[in-house]
Design a binder for these strands. Structure first.
Lengths: 194, 194, 194, 194
DNA sequence: TGGTAATCGAGACGGTACGTCTGGTCTTCGA
DNA sequence: TCGAAGACCAGACGTACCGTCTCGATTACCA
């Protein structure tokens, strides 16, 4: 994306991104340095600057490119009644990894507009799309404007979870997350029946 | 807050905070430096370190201490049907000032746990409390657990707005924000009637 | 010299040396980089490292191999009374080219012992030999040790010119150089007559 | 000289210059780095850049400011018949320290015109002046132009020594240096008697 | 009212990291 | 098959800030 060619060094691109991921999870995005990534990856600094314009862009790639990482990532769409999904999200946002990764992506996003766009396109938007699709099936609504309503509902659902994590030491519990889910579904049903 | 005594310098404490505010709004939190604040306020660096342990703590004070700033701040509670309030919030989060300030507080929060606690206590919690109170009046619900439900609803309402702003170039429109409000109220009403 | 094979590239070996010469004369030895030479010669860096072990060695070759360069080089031996020759040397060491070239060879020499040896053998020693031969003819001296004396005299003659150039903004004038010549010849004559 | 104020840190200015001197003598000017000096002196890089505009200027100060260093420096004027002095110079230029220091000053001089001026004013010119004064006493000459002749003689004397050191692996021996001295004096005497 | 302490601005200090540049080696790919 | 092109690791460059530490000069309080 930043360049069609890819590093071909001994460790290569994946080694670099993997080092960056480890460092973010260990010590957080604020403590992350380009020199630290280079050292951890056994790579010259210039190699990083050759492929990524900034620390934020590198970190975005680190968490966006490899679907296997992070382990229990919030990247699947809800299924069935959604309860299992929303509790898994609550667990993820309560975990050290989930906290580190989400904060890292938020910070990277805040620093650089182009990173923000990329993170949205490749990360946030797909998750929201999955939620919206599931909501459309779960609470059918043929009304004009239903799509906008579902979009707002998805923002509320994911937004409440993220907002809690960013602003509170104790993120939403599984029960709290389920409460959010129920309110969203109840609201949508009422609107659909209106 | 960090010290009962106050600077006696030409500009004083308020001059420092005011300089910090201007710099954040002009150039963003990432570009903010302690040296920059000191220079802008015509103050020695040591004076800043005397009263604030970190850049984040200073910025938190800058936006928390003076109720007059930022101008159209999201700090009042909703009234009536809430529509005017929620549209004002959408406007605020769409503005350059609202974006800068919210991002700055989010970043400061991410860097330092004690700043996070302070921002929550002095800023986020009061806003949420105002919303919760208004929700309790607007959608009366005597059921056990209603408080938890209202807390979740407040997180959804404010969370959706903040989440949108943080992750999207185009924050929620007034209409979108109103949609969120309606869904929250509809959900709460259904739950209350259950 | 460092390799019997020769580049076949567009410009070839002479193109490389010529680029190096131009760059030295334009910007000086300190500002010279291997990358710059490669770029100027339209050649890969590896091609340079294939034939020269260091920047210094390349520069030495650049000024030693081609007798046509630099234009009015100090490489001829004195003739007749030596006045014309010594004034030509003064002019050369006063010129931009003479200054650049001499400084470049001095720096290259200081960095690398093997370059020093090569520059001496191929450049300094022949010049000194020419001077010594001319002195032996001009001030005949059959005494034992006359050769040592002539060697010292040659060092004095050329050394005074080089020393002046290296240490002073204004190198020896033609008159100053002639003064040096007269002193050397007077000293030798006195010694020969002793 | 570069600034009227002086470093006041734990180790101070002299510690920095002393570290620079050691490094030059150990490994030569080419291998010297600003970071190396800073590390050896236990000082931040910025402190060096605050007081000296370049590595060359720092090195010039290192060898010019403290008259006690280098130990057997060529900075005294000749006395008596000059033989002891000229042999001491030959020894100095044959020593590892003399070689390192002279090459370092020559390189620093070649890189930066302002360093060249300073080295000349504070180092080369005083030595030459001492030689000229001694020559004027040793070989009295009331003729017009005698001063120019003595200046040329001083350049020949010191120049031969420096030229030999810079261009040859084996600098002038004591005997060779004495030969130079005799030739200079003989030449001057002849000229004075003319 | 004059003397003494606290506090100020200013900015030097030892450091860390920045983003860039170059050195010297190694790999790719077109002619 | 060989060389241009340029990526690679390494590490120094000169700069920006960090948070700490002197400096005088300027209060402000007490004698």
């Amino acid at each position: 994306m930043h360049n069609v060619k890819r590093p071909r060094g001994a460790r290569g691109r994946e080694g670099i991104l993997s080092s960056a991921r480890s460092l973010v999870i260990e010590s957080g995005y604020e403590a992350l340095t380009v020199e630290g990534i280079a050292a951890a990856a056994g790579v010259g600094k210039q190699t990083l600057y050759r492929w990524w314009p900034s620390k934020g862009a590198l970190v975005a790639d680190a968490f966006l490119d490899d679907p296997a990482i992070p382990p229990s990532f919030a990247s699947t769409a809800p299924t069935g009644d959604g309860v299992a999904w929303v509790r898994a999200q609550a667990d993820y946002f309560s975990s050290a990894v989930g906290t580190s990764v989400t904060r890292a992506l938020t910070s990277a996003t805040a620093e650089d507009e182009s990173v923000a766009i990329r993170v949205h396109e490749r990360f946030t938007a797909p998750i929201l799309a999955g939620i919206i699709d599931w909501l459309a099936i779960t609470v059918p609504d043929a009304a004009a404007g239903a799509t906008e309503r579902q979009r707002a509902a998805a923002d509320m659902l994911l937004g409440a979870l993220v907002f809690r994590m960013l602003t509170r030491s104790e993120p939403l519990s599984g029960d709290g997350a389920e409460e959010v889910l129920h309110l969203v579904l109840a609201g949508l049903r009422t609107a659909a029946a209106r």
